[in-house]
Write a protein that binds this DNA or RNA. Structure first.
Lengths: 208, 208
DNA sequence: TATTTTTTTGATCGAATGGACAATTATTTA
DNA sequence: TAAATAATTGTCCATTCGATCAAAAAAATA
């Protein structure tokens, strides 16, 4: 029997849960919570539907767990912005990290976007919690840098929004991007995007 | 009987179809294609489910029609960018128009975002068609302006992507934006966003 | 007003889907 | 190896949902 309060899982439990999570991420990011079916997830990971429900109580529980484990990873690069470093370098590095995530973690980006887009029913508390904490902390840091005249004055909140939106755009709207760029080579697109974004934010942040 | 080739609709047909479209936009933008149900749409517009299916052959047909009528409106501001005007003014005006659309047409923005995000199954031809045409045209114009040294050199495609992503972010991710800004007044957020964006793009486009 | 056409709806169907469960099989433990 | 526990699966159920259809009601037309 599966214990809710358990701390130790068997080897098989660990393996299978991870297997399910990976498949679930793939299916959820493509079809959304409601479009995804247990059958599709089962098929993707090669298990049977009842077997999946042996490890997770419900479809919603799988979704919640996938989302939860994704969110921590999602916030991390923001936390890495350091007060000690050079302001412009730190911010540009953050832009780069976010762009790399869009490139290598497209599924996660899309899942997250879908969740927020549809009202964040399962993420609202996290948004208002740990994410907000981190954002507020970095906003303070940006304000400090501005007052020290180490970066140009901009609204720090909207600066963060702009970084998120511009970088995530390449993951979330990849269909559109590729379509408009004549299905140009994937690597080239990201190279161009990187150059554009770095130029863009440099110009914006170094003017007095 | 409903005629496919008909050109003239009755008064009731026009009214009811519009009624259904409005309700459908509301429901689809909130729940997505698969999350939306005919029952919800019916409830929203005060019709019965079979009555809706008297005007539209299927749920997909409603969705397609809503999306189609949305897309034209969506492209229009881009078309308005004029070769005659001052380059920076034209682009900044476009930014402003897109931001206003995010503010007043949030549902449309979210529906469009969801569609692209999930592979644009019904929009792909439009993306590759009329949207691409318009984008390519404006890219040429931007390139011309750059070669004339009337705006700073940037990749025009990515410039357009950045305008889209940053402005639409305020509609699509409104939950997150509001949550992180302490549920600040809606109008204030957009006023700040406008100021940020105009500053941002000015700085970016006026450096040599 | 009588007739025809359009619109509306209640009842219902079939497919899809999340989930339950008992029986079976595999694995671990004693 | 025997007993106990964990894992797996075939089968089935209840619900939801898109769609159908015939009959009734309303509107348009003659």
């Amino acid at each position: 029997m599966k214990e809710i309060t358990q701390t130790k899982q068997t080897r098989i439990q660990r393996e299978k849960r991870l297997l399910i999570q990976r498949a679930a991420l793939e299916v959820f990011s493509e079809f959304g919570l409601r479009g995804a079916t247990l059958d599709k997830i089962a098929q993707t990971c090669g298990l049977t539907k009842p077997n999946i429900l042996y490890y997770y109580a419900s479809k919603d529980e799988i979704y919640t767990e996938v989302l939860k484990s994704l969110l921590e990873e999602w916030i991390r690069p923001l936390k890495d912005i350091s007060e000690q470093g050079d302001p412009l370098t730190e911010i540009l590095q953050y832009v780069q990290k976010k762009l790399i995530m869009s490139k290598t973690r497209k599924q996660e980006s899309k899942l997250f976007a879908t969740e927020i887009l549809h009202g964040a029913p399962l993420t609202q508390n996290i948004l208002a919690g740990s994410l907000k904490e981190t954002v507020d902390e970095k906003v303070k840091l940006f304000d400090k840098w501005i007052s020290e005249e180490r970066i140009a004055p901009v609204d720090p909140y909207h600066l963060i929004f702009s970084i998120w939106s511009m970088t995530q755009h390449y993951a979330d709207f990849d269909i559109q991007v590729h379509s408009l760029l004549n299905h140009k080579n994937h690597a080239t697109i990201f190279k161009d995007a990187e150059h554009f974004l770095l130029t863009f934010f440099s110009r914006c942040l170094t003017r007095d």
